[in-house]
């Protein structure tokens, strides 16, 4: 890795539709090295960070993310993740991470049965991770969601583990930061919008930070998520 940039690989499944949004933010706004990784390829090459973007991989057939999980590239992604590699899943990417077993739980149909495309407020629950270090603890972010299956569910023991370990990174909340049933768009347990694995390398979230990263779109709260990853990678690089 060159000292000044991070190499991002964005996996493209048939039906991914936020791949170019991620590419644009990482390449054009944040000036990083970015390449697409086709789902049929088996190598993730020499990337530092993998992004599983949003969309409707394989038409959401069977269950969201269920079929993507078995595409050739995922074998390498799972291997990379197993070695502590940084893997970010956004929306459909989060669903794929859960289906792969890289993150616990599952994303069920929204409680309202409606596909929701809207801005939501989410609260940063833990800023001591490589994904959230550029945020303040408890900060409220305005970031869009666009999903029909974002209702995070896991059994009670898993939820307790996530909560106790600080693995819940984002929670749907009111504009003032209060976590209320009213602020929960999809019925997710404990208003969970994003989680991280135990070792802190794999993260999944339903909201779309890449859609809130360009000032032209008026909201830029998502950009610091990518900046956190870049800063942490570069810091790590300096240390070693």
């Amino acid at each position: 890795m060159k000292s000044s940039v991070v190499k991002f690989g964005i996996v493209v499944f048939p039906g991914s539709n936020c791949d170019y949004d991620c590419f644009y933010v990482l390449k054009k706004i944040l000036k990083q090295e970015v390449r697409f990784l086709w789902h049929k390829h088996s190598s993730i090459e020499d990337v530092d960070v993998i992004v599983l973007p949003g969309g409707f991989s394989y038409g959401d057939y069977l269950r969201c993310g269920a079929i993507a999980r078995f595409s050739p590239i995922m074998k390498s992604v799972i291997e990379f993740a197993g070695k502590g590699g940084t893997v970010l899943g956004i929306c459909n990417g989060f669903q794929i991470l859960c289906e792969s077993g890289l993150l616990p739980g599952a994303l069920l149909r929204n409680k309202s049965l409606k596909f929701i495309c809207d801005y939501v407020n989410i609260r940063v629950e833990n800023n001591k991770t490589i994904y959230t270090s550029a945020y303040k603890q408890g900060e409220v972010l305005k970031i869009p969601i666009a999903h029909g299956d974002g209702n995070y569910f896991a059994d009670d023991d898993t939820i307790k583990m996530l909560e106790d370990n600080g693995q819940v990174l984002f929670r749907y909340c009111e504009p003032d930061g209060r976590v209320t049933p009213n602020a929960n768009p999809n019925g997710a347990v404990n208003n969970i919008a994003g989680i991280i694995n135990e070792s802190g390398s794999i993260m999944g979230m339903m909201p779309h930070p890449e859609r809130a990263s360009d000032a032209v779109l008026r909201h830029t709260d998502g950009r610091r998520l990518f900046e956190s990853i870049i800063n942490e990678r570069l810091l790590k690089c300096l240390e070693t």
């Binding site: 069977l62 269920a66 079929i67 078995f70 289906e99 739980g105 599952a106 569910f153 896991a154 059994d155």
Partner: peptide, 8 residues
Amino acid sequence: KLLANPVM
């Protein structure tokens, strides 16, 4: 392996 997700 594929058809059912034991979580749900």
